[in-house]
Design a protein around this nucleic acid. Structure first.
Length: 289
DNA sequence: CTGGTCTCCTGATCGC
DNA sequence: TGCGATCAGGAGACCA
């Protein structure tokens, strides 16, 4: 906050999306299909701007300049946004895609912000104003960290989708990925394949509480480092050691000792305890009696 | 409109 | 030691 962007280096144009790029510009749409991306202007990426504030919704982080322009970063799976102190330079790494060089208000060097993403599922979006951000975020559901039971109930109402598939949909809840969906469903005692609309009020309330809890625990532990995840200062997380089900298919349930089952839900590997998360558990009782 | 499937990409890991 | 096959997954595109 308060730092000025002195310059930016874009090593891969196709991780950056500006208005006018093809189709929302994600994944294969980026700079492909014979569409020539519009020329990137330095101001698009905040050069000359002072950082006014940052904001976050779900998995998206916005760095907002005093001009009103902003840069939105999504880390995908393998993305990292890290801060380098003045004097140190980013590695000559093929996966470093964007480097911002910062100055303080006196014009002294103030380090660099580096976006690195080996698998490039993440990206950087240049947005011209707050309205553009609001349009994007209007498509996101409530943030998982503060999710209430009634918000979740609204997101699950009427859907026949498996509750896990719904949790992974950022339009239902923003910020829940595969690890935390499995962990939350386990804590709530809900089978991942249960149709969303079948959950009764108590189950939805438990699930919302479990989502808040696993996200908070994950943040406190510095995240889950499965392979190479590190935070903005290069520190690995420890939450992977606290996983109750994720990545533990075939192992013993921490609650009942039974064997955890592996299954596929929404194209994602999923692990659940068939005893603690019974199919049909948490179900709304059918009307009539 | 809803929900399911395909696809992008690279590094780690495994079997031979 | 080398090498190909396999797996992992966020979310947009695409399709029934």
């Amino acid at each position: 906050m308060g730092r000025v962007v002195a310059s930016v280096g874009v090593r891969r144009r196709d991780v950056v999306v500006v208005p006018g790029d093809p189709a929302g510009g994600f994944s294969r749409a980026r700079g492909k299909g014979g569409v020539t991306p519009r020329r990137l202007r330095r101001a698009d990426l905040l050069v000359g701007d002072r950082v006014a504030r940052t904001a976050r919704r779900g998995k998206q982080l916005a760095v907002i300049g005093e001009s009103g322009r902003m840069v939105l970063v999504h880390l995908g799976m393998t993305g990292q946004l890290s801060y380098l102190a003045p004097g140190s330079r980013p590695a000559g790494d093929a996966h470093v895609h964007v480097v911002w060089t910062l100055k303080d208000s006196r014009g002294e060097e103030a380090g660099r912000l580096v976006f690195r993403d080996p698998r490039r599922f993440g990206g950087v979006w240049a947005l011209p104003d707050l309205a553009a951000l609001e349009r994007r975020w209007a498509a996101l559901g409530p943030d998982g960290l503060t999710l209430t039971g009634s918000e979740l109930a609204r997101g699950l109402a009427g859907t026949r989708r498996a509750v896990k598939a719904a949790l992974l949909d950022q339009g239902v809840v923003a910020g829940v990925g595969n690890i935390y969906a499995d962990e939350a469903l386990f804590l709530a005692g809900i089978h991942p394949l249960t149709p969303g609309a079948d959950l009764d009020g108590a189950a939805v309330e438990r699930l919302a509480g479990a989502i808040r809890r696993v996200l908070r625990e994950g943040i406190e532990a510095g995240g889950s480092t499965l392979r190479d995840y590190v935070d903005g200062l290069g520190r690995a997380g420890t939450y992977q050691t606290a996983h109750r089900v994720y990545g533990r298919g075939g192992e013993a349930c921490v609650a009942c000792g039974g064997v955890l089952e592996s299954l596929w839900v929404g194209q994602r590997t999923t692990v659940a305890c068939p005893t603690c998360q019974p199919r049909g558990g948490g179900r709304r009782r059918s009307a009539g009696r």
